[in-house]
Simulated scan of single mutants.
Amino acid sequence: MELLGIHHAAIICSNYERSKHFYSEILKLPVINELYRAERDSYKLDLALPDGSQLELFSFPAAPKRPSYPEAQGLRHLAFNVADIIKSKLYLEEKGIKVEEIRVDEITGKQFTFFADPDDLPLELYQL
């Protein structure tokens, strides 16, 4: 077996319309497919990333909240590559999104910062 990359990451949100707006309009991820599954009272939205990987956004009634930020067991955060971290930080802040100060990865020397989606899922920007 040879793993070739990540196909997708799945996110369960608390407010589908708010999260759909955040990922498709603010983060500008193109919608691949949107499906409402009546038997689950659940939406599934597939979003494209430029490298061919995807984000899947789900809504489920009464899904439990994330226990802590971000040190709970499980997925710690999602990190996105960006070409210009300063421009990306300023863009998010102009959209009213709180972004942490830019830091430097002590191993790679690359710049990175964190922000959160509408459900406080920790997201990272990482300078290429």
Rank of each mutant, 00 (worst) to 15 (best):
S53L: 03
V31K: 12
H77V: 03
R76P: 00
K20F: 00
L128E: 15
E2K: 10
R18K: 15
Y36M: 03
Y91T: 14
D41I: 08
I107G: 04
E71N: 06
F115C: 05
E100F: 12
Y36S: 04
I11H: 04
Q127E: 15
I26Q: 07
I85C: 07
L57R: 08
N81H: 12
S42V: 04
I6W: 05
I86M: 06
H77L: 01
H77E: 02
K89H: 04
G96A: 13
I86C: 04
Y36I: 07
I102H: 02
Q111G: 12
D51T: 14
I6P: 07
E93H: 13
E56H: 06
K20S: 04
I12H: 05
L4T: 12
L49M: 02
T113E: 01
D105Q: 09
E93K: 15
Q54N: 14
N15V: 08
K98W: 03
L125W: 13
L29D: 02
L123Y: 10
T108V: 13
R40N: 04
H8I: 07
Y91S: 13
K87M: 14
K89Y: 05
L29E: 00
A79I: 03
F114N: 06
A83H: 15
H8E: 05
G96K: 14
K20Y: 01
G96L: 12
K44G: 07
Q54K: 15
